[in-house]
């Protein structure tokens, strides 16, 4: 899984472009793949989570689609909540890809990024 240009920091309203592919698994093993862009809280409190972008692709026996192939998606990031590193509460953003395999197995990978307000002229890697 990777984010275009390997960017780690985004401003609200910018477009996040990401792509992923699944290796080391047989084609027929992968039943469905979900990709999401979400924020979640960390810290002493119970974890809260909300999805900003969600996409689900399902294996269709009628077509020759291979869910393992490289797949790209993009989304315009919202105004809030911004990433935050607090003492009791933290807010984190990530791209999450979850693959459902035969037999009820699941594989999940996250790639975190920062949503922050930066002064113009300042690009973050």
């Amino acid at each position: 899984m990777s984010v275009k240009d390997r960017r780690r920091t985004f401003r609200p309203g910018e477009t996040l472009e990401s792509e992923y592919q699944i290796d080391a698994v047989d084609r027929a093993e992968v039943q469905a793949v979900e990709a999401s862009v979400l924020w979640y809280t960390e810290g002493k409190g119970e974890e809260d989570m909300a999805v900003h972008f969600f996409e689900r692709r399902v294996l269709d026996n009628a077509s020759s689609r291979d869910l393992r192939e490289l797949h790209a998606f993009e989304t315009e990031l919202p105004n809030s909540p911004l990433s935050y590193d607090g003492e009791i509460v933290s807010v984190r953003w990530c791209v999450r890809v979850r693959a459902y395999l035969k037999g009820g197995k699941e594989i999940c990978r996250d790639q975190s990024f920062v949503l922050a307000e930066m002064p113009h002229g300042e690009e973050a890697g």
Binding site: G45, E46, E47, D48, A50, P81, L82, Y84, G86, V89
Partner: peptide
């Protein structure tokens, strides 16, 4: 500074 934030179990 962090803006005001409110979720089910956490607030700023």
């Amino acid at each position: 500074l962090m803006h005001s934030f409110q979720s089910a179990h956490n607030t700023v």
